[in-house]
């Protein structure tokens, strides 16, 4: 029972030095950490190694490697893919900004109480119901071919622009519901205390509820945006050449599909930094707002 022995007490003013027991415990914790690290490394090597071995030893592997992983074709297709991927990036950035605005607006309309806004509220409900129900691909086709055909004065006939609008309308409906669930998850006591300070309902939403809601919905929002990044490839159905359709053409022309793998790499390179950024934002908010909680 050495453990029950009192540890030598330090005098109140002396600088603290870890006791022998504490140093012992730190050694144990370090050993535990090292053991965890060793187990994690071993498990990773075993699992990944097993997967790679299984892949490389499959009967069709040489043919697959030649068809999909050819370094020569990759180098050759890279400049073209990079050039056309820029369209995906622009589509994504423009659509994302539009979706955030539209989504938040629709969500705010749906949680508003003003009697004047009743017709708009009804429209907002119909919008989310209808546009979440239509497959994004169908919406791109309808807007991309349909609206230019109307030959409206002063309205663009660019299919790319209408495809972008289709993406905004489709994803706006999802994002509106994400925002709304975030707004509704803010505890009623927050609304009460804002009202008690004399804030109007609009001020309460803008200054108290929405900032808290936005923080909560960042992870699901990211989900939608990653999905959006990939769906920018849908504009290809309108005959607009972006990275995926370029790779498709390239593959069909050269009888080699390495370009697909390269495009996949581009999309991953776009999503991973976004994911890390939101993780970091969420962790920072936790650190700042919840001291002592882990």
């Amino acid at each position: 029972m050495t453990s029950a022995q009192p540890v030598a007490a330090t005098s109140p003013d002396a600088p603290w030095r870890p006791s022998e027991r504490e140093r012992q415990r730190r050694r144990v914790r370090r050993r535990q950490r090292l053991r965890s690290l060793a187990i994690a490394s071993l498990a990773t090597v075993l699992v990944l190694g097993g997967l790679v071995l299984g892949l490389v030893n499959s009967p069709g592997w040489p043919a697959v490697r030649a068809l999909f992983l050819d370094a020569g074709f990759a180098r050759d297709a890279l400049p073209g893919i990079r050039e056309h991927f820029w369209l995906n990036v622009r589509l994504f950035l423009v659509a994302e900004a539009g979706i955030l605005v539209l989504g938040l607006l629709v969500a705010l309309i749906r949680v508003s109480r003003s009697p004047l806004l009743a017709p708009v509220r009804l429209l907002a409900v119909v919008y989310t119901d209808v546009f979440r129900g239509i497959p994004t691909l169908l919406l791109v086709l309808l807007l991309g071919f349909g609206l230019p055909a109307l030959q409206l004065q002063g309205v663009t006939t660019s299919r790319t622009v209408w495809a972008c609008v289709a993406l905004i309308l489709s994803y706006g409906a999802y994002v509106a519901e994400v925002f709304r669930s975030g707004i509704e998850s803010v505890h009623p006591s927050q609304v009460a205390s804002a009202a008690a300070l004399g804030l109007s309902r609009a001020q309460t939403l803008r200054l108290v509820v929405v900032p808290q809601a936005v923080r909560r919905v960042i992870p699901p929002l990211l989900n939608d945006f990653v999905s959006l990044q990939k769906d920018t490839a849908l504009v290809s159905v309108l005959g607009v050449v972006e990275a995926v359709s370029f790779a498709q053409d390239y593959g069909n022309f050269n009888f080699n599909y390495t370009a697909y793998v390269v495009v996949a790499g581009f999309f991953i390179a776009l999503t991973v930094p976004t994911a890390r950024l939101t993780d970091w934002l969420a962790a920072r908010a936790r650190r700042r707002e919840q001291p002592g909680q882990r």
Partner: peptide, 14 residues
């Protein structure tokens, strides 16, 4: 630092 013993066992042990 220090030690917490519960029912004769050191529970501050990692």
């Amino acid at each position: 630092d220090g030690v917490i013993v519960f029912d004769g066992r050191e529970i501050s042990d990692p």
